[in-house]
Amino acid sequence: MSAAGIAPIAAVGTPPLALPITDVVAPAAASRGQGFVALLMQGLQGVDAKLNAADTLVRRFAIDDDVPVHQVTMALEEARLSVELAMQVRGRLVESYRELMNMQL
Results as ranks from 00 to 15, higher is better:
residue 64 D to Y: 10
residue 57 L to S: 03
residue 50 K to G: 02
residue 51 L to F: 00
residue 71 Q to N: 09
residue 63 I to N: 05
residue 75 A to F: 05
residue 80 R to F: 08
residue 72 V to N: 01
residue 49 A to P: 00
residue 81 L to T: 09
residue 67 V to C: 05
residue 58 V to E: 11
residue 66 D to Q: 06
residue 81 L to D: 11
residue 51 L to V: 08
residue 80 R to I: 01
residue 80 R to C: 03
residue 75 A to G: 12
residue 84 E to G: 03
residue 55 D to F: 03
residue 79 A to M: 08
residue 50 K to I: 02
residue 70 H to Y: 07
residue 72 V to K: 01
residue 68 P to T: 11
residue 53 A to K: 09
residue 80 R to G: 09
residue 71 Q to K: 15
residue 64 D to T: 15
residue 61 F to D: 08
residue 56 T to N: 07
residue 57 L to H: 02
residue 51 L to I: 06
residue 83 V to S: 08
residue 62 A to F: 01
residue 63 I to S: 08
residue 75 A to Y: 04
residue 54 A to M: 09
residue 73 T to Q: 07
residue 49 A to W: 06
residue 82 S to G: 15
residue 81 L to Q: 15
residue 51 L to E: 08
residue 58 V to Y: 00
residue 84 E to K: 13
residue 78 E to K: 12
residue 57 L to C: 10
residue 64 D to V: 04
residue 65 D to Q: 13
residue 68 P to F: 09
residue 78 E to I: 09
residue 74 M to T: 12
residue 80 R to W: 04
residue 82 S to H: 06
residue 79 A to Q: 06
residue 75 A to V: 12
residue 58 V to S: 14
residue 53 A to E: 06
residue 69 V to P: 00
residue 66 D to H: 05
residue 55 D to T: 10
residue 79 A to R: 07
residue 77 E to A: 13
residue 54 A to C: 10
residue 67 V to W: 01
residue 58 V to W: 01
residue 62 A to P: 01
residue 77 E to D: 14
residue 76 L to Q: 15
residue 79 A to C: 10
residue 58 V to D: 05
residue 80 R to P: 00
residue 55 D to Y: 04
residue 55 D to C: 09
